[in-house]
């Protein structure tokens, strides 16, 4: 098992998977880059067309595979590129967050945020905050899939 993030320091470095919608949040991430803002390298972004595309299974899979936190970011409600995708996403993912909590998993490991394409600063800030929060929570042990670990 490679632990590139852990090699650097003895300090705990969480892994955070961020699913960003192509039109707002991914572009917000691009703007954070263009503006040379900085945020922790713990965050890795996966591009999805819309947060309405977010199947909760994707989130569970990330946790199973060892992600310590998952962030879904989409356009502000009302600003969806596809008119209504983020409304479906908002509803589905907030229900999912409650369900995760009900199942006995720390709900704070999963967040949904609205970041527009002009909010590079907000993108960097959210990534910063998420990382700090997950660092405080510590490693995700509950939902990791032991088989997956042994395979790699």
């Amino acid at each position: 098992m490679s632990t590139a993030l852990n090699e650097k320091s003895a300090g705990y470095q969480p892994l955070i998977v961020a699913f960003c919608c192509n039109w707002c949040s991914y572009a917000g991430g691009d703007l954070a880059g263009t503006s040379r803002m900085s945020y922790p390298a713990n965050v890795r972004v996966i591009r999805v067309p819309c947060c309405g595309r977010m199947n909760p299974m994707f989130v569970l899979r990330a946790f199973q595979r060892g992600a310590d936190g998952v962030l879904v970011a989409g356009c502000h409600p009302g600003d969806c590129h596809y008119s209504t995708g983020n409304y479906h996403g908002r509803r589905r993912l907030s229900a999912f967050k409650r369900l995760v909590e009900f199942a006995g998993f720390e709900p704070d490991r999963f967040e949904v945020r609205w970041i527009s394409s002009s909010e590079g600063d907000k993108f960097a800030e959210e990534m910063e905050q998420m990382t700090a929060k997950i660092k405080a929570l510590g490693p995700n042990r509950k939902m990791r899939d032991a088989r997956w670990q042994s395979v790699t």
């Binding site: 098992m1 590139a4 993030l5 996966i46 595979r65 992600a67």
Partner: peptide
Amino acid sequence: GFSNEQILAEVDAICLQR
């Protein structure tokens, strides 16, 4: 272009270091 399989493959690849 953004199939379930593709997104899950990305998740797996990103989490591989764990």
